[in-house]
Write a protein that binds this DNA or RNA. Structure first.
Lengths: 152, 152
DNA sequence: TATTGTTATACTCTATAACTATA
DNA sequence: TATAGTTATAGAGTATAACAATA
């Protein structure tokens, strides 16, 4: 399908539609493992970074704490993670990956990497690297309200 | 907030989070006009391109026809557009902008352009232009399944 | 038979409000 | 007073299924 010039120059449309397509690919790739993207993201962070406080994910994913509770609850029911109150601050749930969680995130990561490779196949590595840097710069600037030109 | 390397190299995360921030800016900018982004997009296309068949928007926005019906219905209730059966194919609703719709889309477009300018402020015009070309290439490649490496 | 559009319905993701416990 | 987490509830956006009209 053709993309009218109006949309080809519209950052909201370009980012929105491209992201929608990639999200669909990722959802389809994770569906056989019965994982949604936020569940994968949380497991992956625990696998790479180690145990994390539950509240850290509400910033990382840009969702609120009730949504994080639901995600954590679902992963705990499948025994992919377990919760333990922090010794330092007993309000905080520390989240730990179980061996079962470690196994599923390894399988999921292979699928996610395959999707990313195939998604980026139409552009060169250099092209994506340049685009990635620009997108990362935008994300960092706007995630920290002090650097943003747009007031809440 | 810092972005862990795992996420800074993850296209799904980068595009997803950046798009989420921009979408929020756009929603906030359009809220005073009581428009959501798809409503704005539809009005803007009619303003730039002229009357369009209703079904064309389901491809442009990547949503299904029942969602388009709901959007069209809301815009018609506010008398921003009206529908008329196509002479060539009486199944098709042709959508027309009213003077009232033309006025609101003009106001909305100024707000949207301001958001885009402010969103892109952290990067140079050259940087965004390069990123834009890469994103557009990805969108075009994946929108047409024949060019995609990922099978449905 | 296939496509356009409508209606009724349900699902998914997310947020708001009220609460407990801890700081 | 402020923060972390939970629960109950509601909303926004989207999709599925069944249908009518038209091709």
């Amino acid at each position: 399908m053709d993309i009218p010039e109006e949309f080809a120059n519209n950052p909201g449309y370009l980012l929105g539609q491209t992201t929608k397509i990639l999200r669909k690919y990722l959802e389809d790739a994770l569906k056989p493992l019965n994982l949604i993207t936020h569940e994968y993201g949380l497991l992956r962070v625990l696998a790479v970074t180690g145990p994390m406080p539950q509240h850290s994910f509400q910033e990382q994913f840009g969702i609120d704490r009730t949504s994080v509770t639901a995600i954590v609850d679902g992963l705990e029911k499948r025994a992919y993670i377990y919760k333990d109150k922090s010794k330092d601050d007993k309000r905080v749930n520390m989240l730990y990956l179980t061996p079962k969680g470690k196994a599923v995130v390894a399988r999921a990561t292979r699928r996610v990497h395959r999707v990313h490779r195939e998604f980026l196949e139409p552009v060169s590595e250099e092209e994506w690297e340049r685009a990635r840097e620009v997108i990362l710069k935008l994300l960092i600037a706007h995630r920290n309200p002090d650097h943003s030109r747009i007031r809440p």
